[in-house]
Amino acid sequence: MHEEVIISGFGGQGALFAGQLLTYAGLAEGRHVSWIPSYGPEMRGGTAHCTVIISDEPIGSPIIYRPTSCIVLNPPSFEKYEPLVKPGGYLIVNSSLVRQKSARTDITVVEVPANDLAYEIGNVRVANLVLLGALLGINPFVKLESVIQALEEHVPEQRPAYH
């Protein structure tokens, strides 16, 4: 198996963390894995994305431009990545924020009102994980249990308050 995933959203939406969880899950399942973030001058508000590769063979480039699976958390990410998903691939759209519709017929598009669902669960910050769950529901290239295990082991450190 070889899965190339891009997760993209506003800085602060947890795109990078969701990608790390996925990577840990792949590692726990004995695959070759890589994770690489976009990194730029923006700290908050800018678009941040990460690329996760989970594969049975050693990973050459951790950077890819045409994902086989893609999660878009915000409208700019939709605009950027919707055309790039590989034919036969999966596009998971946060429909709470993304109003655009995909016209593509060669990929599977799943719209999930992730912010609303997260809000209902009681924590709007887990919209990223709602979308990750949706992706693995339709394309289970790692087990959900592995992700849950990763979540338990790698809850992100809170950024310390500098005041």
């Binding site: 790390q20 990577t23 590692l27 894995v33 890589s34 994770w35 690489i36 973030p37 990194y39 990973i59 951790p62 950077i63």
Partner: peptide, 10 residues
């Protein structure tokens, strides 16, 4: 390089 610095691998 920046890729090796930024990426995660086991």
């Amino acid at each position: 390089d920046g890729m090796l610095g930024q990426m995660m691998e086991p």
